[in-house]
Simulated scan of single mutants.
Amino acid sequence: MVDEGDAAPDFTAPLANGDVTQFTLSDRLDEAPLVLAFFPGAFTGTCTHEMETFEDRLGEFDDLGATVYGVSVDTPFALDAFREDSDLTFGMISDTNRRIVDAYDLAMDFASLGVDDVAKRAVVVVDGDGVVRYEWVAGDPSIEPDYDEVRDAVAALN
């Protein structure tokens, strides 16, 4: 896992935002703080609740000048369907090749389900210089982030 104070690993990946475009972290630093909300899989109970909670609180992040992105190993087409089904307005980064979860050391397996190499539930906040200013990783994938703590971490950057 990257630690607070580390340079955020740069990456380029498909962005599901109603269309499918390209997202490069270093090209989006003008949108910082960037809240990267990693989650194991679209259309699952806890992941859906987490992304819907970020959506419900999106105004708080907007007011702080932050941009929220979901990140999972789902295809961009599945993520667009997930966005539509859950009425999400923020973009979803598709890491089907697992380069991002590997670079951030956030890969995990659901051995009991036979599913390998998905994203751990985690939140990383990146500032305008590309530095990680907050990181949280769930020890248990059923645990959601402390949304107030994430908001406070973003507010501390202002």
Rank of each mutant, 00 (worst) to 15 (best):
A16I: 02
A16D: 06
A16Y: 06
G18F: 05
G18V: 05
G18I: 04
G18Q: 09
D19H: 01
V20C: 08
V20Y: 03
V20D: 12
T21R: 13
T21F: 05
Q22W: 03
Q22H: 07
Q22F: 02
F23P: 09
F23H: 03
F23T: 05
L25Q: 02
L25C: 04
S26Q: 10
S26Y: 09
S26C: 05
S26A: 13
S26G: 08
D27A: 09
R28P: 01
R28M: 08
R28H: 13
L29T: 01
L29P: 01
L29V: 03
D30H: 04
D30G: 06
D30L: 00
D30Y: 01
E31K: 04
A32I: 14
A32D: 11
A32T: 02
A32L: 09
A32P: 02
A32H: 06
P33S: 12
P33N: 12
P33H: 12
P33I: 12
L34M: 04
L34F: 03
L34D: 09
V35T: 11
V35M: 13
V35K: 14
V35E: 13
L36E: 11
L36F: 10
A37T: 07
A37L: 08
A37E: 09
F38M: 02
F38E: 01
F38P: 07
F39D: 05
F39P: 05
P40I: 00
G41P: 15
G41Q: 15
G41R: 15
G41C: 10
A42N: 11
F43Q: 12
F43C: 12
T44L: 05
T44R: 01
G45T: 13
G45E: 10
G45S: 12
G45K: 03
T46D: 07
T46A: 14
T46V: 15
C47H: 11
C47I: 10
C47M: 11
C47A: 10
C47F: 07
C47R: 06
H49W: 01
H49E: 12
E50D: 10
E50V: 04
E50H: 07
E50N: 05
E50P: 01
E52Y: 07
E52V: 10
E52S: 08
E52C: 14
E52K: 14
T53V: 02
T53Y: 00
T53N: 01
F54D: 12
F54Y: 11
E55G: 11
E55H: 07
E55Q: 15
E55A: 09
D56I: 06
D56M: 08
D56A: 06
D56V: 00
R57Y: 02
R57V: 12
R57I: 10
R57S: 00
L58G: 15
L58H: 09
L58I: 15
L58S: 14
E60Q: 11
F61K: 14
